[in-house]
Structures are given as structure tokens and as C-alpha cells.
Simulated scan of single mutants.
Amino acid sequence: MVVAPSISPAAQLSPTPSPSSRPTVTPEPETGGPQNDAAVALAQLASLPVVSGHSDAQYDRDRFGQRWLDVDRNGCDTRNDTLGRDLLDPVFKPGTNDCKVLSGLLIDPYDGQRVDFVSGWDTSVLVQIDHVVALAWSWRHGAEYWTDEERAAFANDPQNLVAASEATNQSKSDSGPSEWLPAVPELRCTYVENFVDVLHTYDLGIGAADRDAAQAVLQGC
């Protein structure tokens, strides 16, 4: 079951934070993206096969299908479904059955920063949809052997998606936990828990360095 991301709307932000200020993040059950538990994640991590993380076949984004399909057939593409789930106070375009998101407030799940989302050709990019387990990373750890249909389902699975700022999404790129972790230490547990949960759900492998990094985080949660 998909539940909400790991940054609470009540993340104790100051009333008028400056653009460069960082809010105090209080880890607690919240709204938006997937959620797991450290003990469960440690058990899941121990069950994952350790693989090299190398693929002889070149990664191709197109092998994961058209971007932002309507996989649940609710009349709304995956990007807007995720924005509507993860943004605070989303405003929807009239006549779209609460599908097309025009604006809202993002509390970034990786650094706790506030980002105002306004739909537009030069503004939408400020809030992006991050794959918790990046598509290129998944390709190198087992997804190259999936069918195209399985890859398309993975690319649009809400369990593996969170709205994030352009800055953190680009910084994270296709890294695993050994190369990238959220800037705010309090947010690392949820990220790693969710990362491992996705691997477990999809029977993906994990490299030794990423396994060790994930285990170190989870043991401190």
C-alpha cells in the first residue's frame, strides 16, 4: 500500500523562512510517498542478492516506456498523480477531476526545503518526480532482464516515486546510498527504508558498497 512521503506538512517551518533557510525537520508519520520501518528494511536488505551493479547492455531510458503513463487508468498521468499526492494545498485545474495540478507547496523529502510549485513551461521544472530507485540504477541491478511492460510499470509505480526539488533530484541522479544520501541526516532513514523496500518488492540486487551504506544508515535509525 502506498502511503505518504517522509516530510511532514508539520515539519516545523518558521512562519516566514528565507529562501536559503533550512527548516527543522521532525521525523514522524506524514503525507506523501512510501514509508517503511528500519527493522523491516534491515531484514529485507539481508535477503537481497549482492550483484556487481554492472551491465553489458547499455541503459536506455526508452526501455522503461513512455514517460508518465496513466497506469492506474484514473484519467491522470503519473506525474500529476504524484504532485497531487505529495504537494501541500494542491490547486487543480477546473474540469480535470482533480488531475492537472496548477500549484502547491513542496517540502522536499531530501533536504526539507520549501519549494513553491507553479505549473508552467519555465516553472514546472522546479519540482520534479524522483525515482527513489533510479531507472538507470535498476537497469544495472536486474531490470535489464525485465520485459518492457515490467519496466514501464516500475517507472510509474507510486511506491518508487516522490516529488522533489530540481536541485535534489539532479544531485541524486542515478546514485545508490553509497554515493548519495539526503543532506539532512534525519531524513536518511526514510529514504534508505524506502529504497530497500523497492528493491525487495521488485527482486532487484544490490552492490556491496550500497548494501553496506544502507545497513549503516538503518542500524542508526
Rank of each mutant, 00 (worst) to 15 (best):
V71H: 11
C76N: 07
D86C: 06
L105M: 12
D70G: 10
D70N: 11
N97H: 14
Y110D: 01
N97S: 15
R61T: 01
V118T: 14
D81C: 06
R63F: 07
D116K: 10
R79K: 11
S103R: 12
L106A: 02
S52F: 00
R114I: 09
H54F: 10
F117D: 03
D81G: 06
V71C: 13
W68K: 04
G75T: 10
A46E: 13
R61F: 01
L48A: 05
R67T: 15
D60A: 14
R79C: 03
S103I: 07
V51D: 00
S52Q: 06
V91E: 12
L83S: 07
V71T: 15
V50Q: 10
K93R: 15
N80G: 04
F64L: 02
D86V: 09
Q66L: 14
G112S: 04
A46F: 01
A46P: 00
Q58T: 15
V118M: 05
L48K: 02
D60V: 10
N97I: 07
F92M: 05
L105Y: 00
R67S: 15
F64H: 02
R63Y: 05
D108R: 02
L105A: 06
D86T: 10
D70E: 10
S52K: 05
V101P: 04
P109R: 03
C76V: 11
Q66K: 14
R67F: 11
V101L: 08
V71R: 13
D98S: 15
L45W: 01
L69T: 15
L69V: 13
F117R: 00
F92N: 08
R85Y: 08
V118S: 08
P49M: 00
Y110C: 03
P49T: 00
R61G: 05
Y59T: 05
L45D: 03
K100N: 12
V71N: 12
V91K: 09
G84Q: 07
L69Y: 04
L106I: 03
L69F: 02
D56I: 11
K93C: 09
T82S: 11
L88V: 15
D72F: 09
D72W: 07
V51N: 01
P94F: 08
D116P: 00
K100Q: 14
A46T: 09
P94W: 03
R63G: 02
V101G: 08
I107D: 08
R73F: 11
G84D: 08
L83Y: 13
D77N: 15
D81F: 06
D86P: 07
V101W: 06
W68S: 12
N80A: 08
N80V: 10
A57S: 12
L87V: 04
L48G: 02
S55M: 01
R63A: 15
G65H: 08
G95D: 06
D60S: 13
R114T: 10
W68R: 05
Y59W: 01
D60C: 02
